[in-house]
Design a binder for these strands. Structure first.
Length: 459
RNA sequence: UGCCCGAUAGUGUAACGGUAGCACGACAGAUUCUGAUUCUGUUUGUCGGGGUUCAAAUCCCUGUCGGGCAACCA
């Protein structure tokens, strides 16, 4: 083995006296052999007294097992409290474990500790800036110290720490994410609600939107909480420009156009993306029976409601003006369907007489619509900072996933995985890459559109 | 307790010692065949107290608050 590797380690209690427990042992790996050396001075002097270390030979790695029979459990370092820098006080560099390794098997019983490994592997790999999260800040002196003692290539790596990303309504620590997976609060590491790259990808976030978000968040040492709104904004900003528009009704209410001829249909022209003329147009089938969103009709609408209600006229996007004539209910009083009339003069969406309507609704033709499973994802937690108090599991959002069957315009039937579209007035959606199959449509909601009406209605 | 780190608008982030800006949000208005988008405007900030300086978010001292470390984890 060519490189000379030098490390230090605490002594097993069996080998040394009480005072000696405060000394380092060096394993020097040379030509396949390790030489163990022990400084004759207390830890606080060790860094300057390296030259004086007494050497004893230990074969390494082949004989390590045999040579360190009593090292089953290296003693915990006895802290001298003499050094101001904590991590330079008798740091453990190797630990001895007589256990089979999941990969190396029985070959080794010596395992390097993080502080020894991190700086060296950085150096060997030619890392210049070794970036890590804040909790390793106090380890930096040891990181530097080890490299200072060794003939490593120059310039040597430097460790830089920064605060970890901490979005609202989310937990980020691996331990907690694992708990979410193992306790089945989510469906695996790539569940679209997970803040993993696999999850974000499956959800439909683009790489560039995540990069933009990270750029906005920046790299600092300040431990803040970043509003997920920034991420949502980032993906909306991108998809607004790139995603083609489609019509889909997720909570259907049947509309019958009473004065539209029975059994007939026609095709209307819809713009694919108003932000991108090159995206072109497509045909949208229209007929006597349609679906609109339940939320777009109110029998007794409040003042600022612009949508459909008894006697009101609204526009069906790309289609006609319609006026609600009557409401059909079941025995329990639930609205079953509504009856409207349309104005044939308003084909394409504008009236020759110049009259205006307040609302424009999206719709699909009932006879042409295709069904699809649609997964509506929301924030995983109900609290902005789930870890703030108590068990974060307690504030899981029970509505973080709603699965519904939507009515989609027929052009969505063969949307390939990887495509992202805007369902008009609803949000951005993409076929789920795992569960979508031929004839089995599954859509994930990436993010909803901004909805200032919903905000106002909540007041 | 000791040591280390941090603090700029509601949130996040900029500013050779030299005009405190940007994004998101919020609010108001305009445009609109998406209550979307777009556009315009408004709002709110350097943790406190000293000091150095012609000049401090920035340098020094001090306090406060928040976080980390004190493992045979990484």
């Amino acid at each position: 083995m060519r490189p000379v590797i030098l490390s230090s380690c605490t002594i097993t209690p069996c080998n040394l006296s009480a005072t000696a427990t405060r000394t380092f042992v060096i394993f020097r790996l040379r030509n396949g052999k390790a030489i163990a050396a022990r400084p004759s001075c207390p830890a606080r002097k060790a860094p300057t007294a390296i030259a004086a270390w007494r050497k004893t030979s230990i074969c390494f790695p082949a004989c390590a097992r045999a040579s360190l029979p009593m090292a089953r459990k290296p003693c915990a370092p006895r802290l001298t409290w003499l050094r101001r820098i904590l991590h330079l006080r008798d740091p453990v560099i190797y630990r001895i474990r007589h256990e089979a390794h999941h990969q190396a098997g029985e070959a080794w019983c010596i395992y390097p500790m993080y502080d020894f490994t991190h700086c060296l592997s950085d150096s060997i790999e030619g890392i210049s800036h070794s970036i890590c999260t804040l909790e390793f800040e106090v380890h930096r002196p040891l990181y530097d110290w080890v490299l200072d003692q060794l003939p490593v290539s120059q310039p040597r790596p430097h460790q830089h720490e920064f605060s970890r990303l901490n979005p609202t309504y989310m937990v980020m620590s691996k331990r907690k994410l694992r708990q979410l997976v193992e306790e089945n609060h989510v469906h695996g590491w790539d569940d679209p609600r997970m803040p993993t790259l696999a999850g974000y990808r499956r959800r439909g976030f683009t790489a560039s939107s995540i990069r933009n978000f990270c750029q906005g968040v920046g790299v600092t040492k300040f431990k803040g909480v970043t509003d997920v709104g920034l991420l949502e904004n980032s993906i909306r900003e991108e998809l607004n420009k790139t995603a083609e528009r489609r019509c889909a009704v997720l909570d259907p209410l049947e509309v019958v156009i009473d004065n539209y001829p029975e059994g007939e249909s026609e095709e209307l022209e819809a713009i694919n993306n108003p932000e991108d003329e090159a995206a072109g147009k497509r045909a949208l089938p229209f007929g006597r029976r349609l679906f609109i969103e339940r939320a777009d009709f109110m029998e007794d609408p409040p003042k600022k409601f612009f949508r459909l209600g008894p006697g009101r006229e609204v526009r069906l996007r790309y289609a006609y003006f319609i006026t609600c004539q009557s409401v059909e209910k079941d025995a329990a009083g639930n609205i079953q369907r509504i009856h409207c009339t349309y104005d044939p003069e308003t084909r394409g969406g504008s009236a020759p007489d110049g009259r205006k309507v307040k609302g424009t609704l999206h719709w699909v033709s009932a006879d042409h619509a295709v069904d699809a499973e649609v997964r509506l994802y929301d924030r995983l937690f109900t609290e902005a900072e789930p870890e703030a108090e108590g068990d974060f599991i307690d504030c899981l959002n029970p509505n973080s996933l709603k699965i519904i069957t939507g009515k989609l315009e027929p052009s969505l039937a063969d949307l390939p995985v990887g495509q992202r579209v805007q369902f008009e007035r609803l949000g951005y959606f993409t076929p789920d890459p795992k569960d979508s199959a031929e004839g089995q449509l599954v859509f994930n909601r990436i993010v909803a559109l901004r909805d200032s009406w919903a905000k106002q209605a909540r007041k």
